[in-house]
Design a protein around this nucleic acid. Structure first.
Ligand SMILES: NC(=O)c1ccc[n+]([C@@H]2O[C@H](COP(=O)([O-])OP(=O)(O)OC[C@H]3O[C@@H](n4cnc5c(N)ncnc54)[C@H](O)[C@@H]3O)[C@@H](O)[C@H]2O)c1
Ligand SMILES: NC(=O)c1ccc[n+]([C@@H]2O[C@H](COP(=O)([O-])OP(=O)(O)OC[C@H]3O[C@@H](n4cnc5c(N)ncnc54)[C@H](O)[C@@H]3O)[C@@H](O)[C@H]2O)c1
Lengths: 214, 214
DNA sequence: ATGTCTTTGTGAACGCGTGCACAAAGATGG
DNA sequence: CCATCTTTGTGCACGCGTTCACAAAGACAT
């Protein structure tokens, strides 16, 4: 039975082993003291808890540059997501296949959501169309939305929205970049450079805490 | 002189006014007691601190579905980012314009980085090519990388990497989605549903803290 | 069966970000 | 010039997540 210790996993992930064990403990006691965790069983338990064991039908609305790229992306299927339908407002696109899936017109949005039992929608329309599209998706029964349009969406309680803003990603990089330059210039001033985070910035998260003094 | 109070700003942003004031205080004391903050001056100071006042040349490597979509995206320019060059390994693409910018071949990568003074690179190649491309970018002087390939990149100290993993965004939504369904089923069991966050999930950040008991 | 050795699971301490509460600053009006 | 009123800037306390440290559990050898 292949096993891994929390120490090994923690080292590989670059985190503290105690935290990793405590996190696992929320799923139950799946480890064996003196041995570690059964890899296969652990993978299954985590997958199940994260919802990776079921497959989720997803619709993409707005099949332009970005929407088409998303439709073509094979990485979703491997994580349990299935592109159930592509929707666009442009009549010229209706019926035209993108990534092997025929694009359907916005008029049928409600029907498509309903027939496919979709609860997750991706919005890749221009900013102006995002809120109206969002409203229709929600009204049709979608309760989770991934929004690429540069707009803050208003949704009722119970609906989750995640916004992906690529400009902000670049801004965060630029912020650190600017800071690097500043530190070099001040390197002669004696003060040591502050500790740098070494992670792979999983998203535009709790970053950028301290700011340089005036 | 148009001004805003920390209270107004906090309400608009949906955060605590004390936190907002404390954050601003790291930039210096730009407010006037009894009045508030001079809007124009505040915007300038924040922009400067965030590095929004300078424009950053950026190169995109891997001009496929995603890379082309990024190149066509106008939202970057408005935030101070300029697409300085597009690079792809496919000889057939060399010279072909995408979004008005001719695609250049990977062979010239180092020269392109150097001549344009690029310090920020975007990787949109297949996963297998990401690390080699990353190494070349870093060797050529790039110190910030936005990675779309589903790979964890190894970089030397001093180089920042941010990874955008769209599958993880969907997974987070699916996780909450699964949980919603679970709560409905357990609604009869008496325990009240835990408080739900109402924000717009700026990235795959410090989310998903507590996990359901076994 | 008993002892030893490894690794888990978790109570307790620590550190840090967030929010409260208020004194100080400064504008404004009399 | 003084009184009053608004809003900033910040010390302090609270809460939560992270880390430490260790007892308990269990495998494995003798
Ligand atoms: N391209 C990028 O890399 C990128 C990056 C970040 C954000 N974004 C954002 O993503 C969105 C899409 O970008 P894009 O480059 O694909 O734009 P695009 O113009 O190429 O595509 C937009 C598509 O949406 C369709 N559309 C318009 N109104 C619609 C509606 N009401 N219902 C359904 N479909 C509708 C259009 O027909 C078009 O096909 C934009 O909001 C953009 O700001 C794009
Ligand atoms: N399309 C999406 O929505 C999406 C979403 C998430 C992640 N991704 C990831 O982004 C990357 C690109 O996705 P895509 O859909 O655009 O793929 P794609 O196959 O359409 O494009 C890849 C491009 O990279 C070029 N390339 C290959 N090797 C290269 C090298 N060594 N140097 C320079 N260029 C090279 C290819 O010529 C091609 O043009 C992939 O890693 C994919 O997993 C894509």
């Amino acid at each position: 039975m292949p096993t891994v210790s929390s120490e090994e996993l923690a080292a590989a992930a670059g985190v503290n082993s105690a935290k990793l064990r405590k996190d696992f403990s929320y799923l139950g006691s799946y480890g064996t003291r003196g041995v570690g965790y059964d890899v296969e069983y652990l993978v299954y338990q985590i997958s199940r808890e994260l919802g990776l064991t079921q497959d989720w039908p997803v619709v993409i609305v707005g099949i332009g540059n970005l929407g088409a790229a998303l439709a073509n992306y094979g990485g979703f299927a491997s994580r349990g997501f299935r592109v159930a339908a592509l929707i666009d407002a442009d009549p010229a696109m209706a019926g035209k296949p993108v990534a092997g899936i025929p694009v359907q017109h916005t008029d049928d949005l409600e029907k498509i959501i309903d027939e496919n039992g979709v609860s997750i929608g991706v919005i890749a329309t221009p900013a102006g169309a995002a809120q109206p599209v969002c409203d229709r998706l929600v009204a049709a029964g979608v309760t989770s939305i991934l929004n690429f349009a540069p707009t803050v969406l208003s949704v009722p309680d119970g609906v989750d929205v995640r916004k992906v803003d690529l400009s902000i990603e670049l801004q965060i990089l630029a912020f650190h970049e600017q800071r690097k330059a500043g530190e070099e210039a001040e390197a002669q001033a004696g003060a040591a450079a502050p500790a740098e985070r070494g992670d792979q910035g999983e998203g535009p998260d709790g970053d950028v805490p301290a700011v340089m003094p005036a």
